[in-house]
Simulated assay, not measured.
Amino acid sequence: MANSGLQLLGFILSLVGLAATISATFMVQWKKQSQSKAHRVYEGLWMTCSGNERTTCDPHDSVLKLPPEVQATRAVLLFSILLSAVAVMISIVGMKCTHFMDAKPSSKSLAALIGGILFMSSGLLTIIITSWYVKMIVNSSQQTHRLQSLEFGKAVFVSGFGGFLTMGGGAFLSCRRCSKRQAAQSISSNHLLPTAIPKSNYV
C-alpha cells in the first residue's frame, strides 16, 4: 500500500506540473518591457500585448520573424507537453491502484517505470529551456537602451515550477526499489505457505 500511495502522489504531482507547463506555454507574460512609466509591452510565445490602461494583443504573424529564444522555447515546451501526455497514459496502466495488467506484475511495474522516466525527461526539458530563455532575456536586457526596462514575466516562474513538479512526480513514479521490495515479500510469503500447510495435516 505504501508503494501504491507513493505512485499516486507522484502521478498527482506530475499532473499538476503538466497543468502548470501548459498554462505557462500559453501565457503572455514571458517577457515584460517598460517603455515608459505607463506603457508596457508583454511578449509571449504566441502573441504580444501592449498598452497603457487598455491592453491590445496581436498574435505572432510569422514564425520565421520571431526571436530564436521564442521559437526554441515554443518548440521544446510543446514537445515536453507531448511527452507528459504519453507518460500519463503509460503511468495509468502501470500504477498499482489500477487494474490494468494485474496478471503481469513485472510488465505493470515496467510500465510505471517508463512513465516515470518520461515525466522526468519532460520536466528536465522544461527546466532547461526555461533557464535558457531567462539567460537570453538577461543578455538582451544588458544590450537594450537604458530607457527601456526589459525583464522576464510570471510565465517563467510558472514554467520552472511546473518542470520541477513534473520531474519530482516522475521520480516517485519510477521508484522501482519499493516495488522490488514488495515483490520480494510476496514471493517469500508464497514460499512459506506450502511448508506451513503440510505441517497442519499431520497434527
Rank of each mutant, 00 (worst) to 15 (best):
S186R: 13
I12V: 15
I128V: 15
E53F: 08
H145D: 14
R177V: 14
L45E: 05
T166E: 04
A103T: 10
N139P: 00
L15S: 09
L193G: 08
K104Y: 08
L192E: 14
M1Y: 09
L125P: 03
D102A: 09
C175L: 13
C57N: 12
A85S: 14
R176K: 11
V88A: 05
A171L: 07
L45Y: 03
G169M: 01
G17K: 01
S200C: 08
S122V: 10
P198N: 10
Y133I: 08
F161N: 04
A87Y: 05
Q29L: 04
C49D: 09
F79L: 11
I117P: 00
I129G: 02
K108Q: 11
L13I: 07
S14Y: 02
H145M: 13
P67Y: 07
P105G: 01
A112C: 14
K108C: 11
K96V: 03
Y133R: 05
S159H: 05
S140W: 05
F157M: 15
K37H: 09
G163C: 07
V88T: 10
L124G: 12
A87S: 15
A38L: 15
I117F: 03
A111I: 04
S4Y: 00
M120W: 00
V158G: 01
K108N: 06
K96S: 12
L173M: 12
V203F: 04
F157E: 03
M101P: 00
W30M: 04
V88E: 05
S141T: 14
V76A: 10
M167N: 06
R146F: 10
T55V: 15
Q148C: 05
T73G: 04
L192A: 14
V63H: 11
M136R: 13
V158S: 02
R54I: 15
N201F: 07
L18S: 07
G44V: 06
W132F: 07
H99F: 11
S141G: 10
L147I: 12
H99V: 13
L9G: 09
L64G: 08
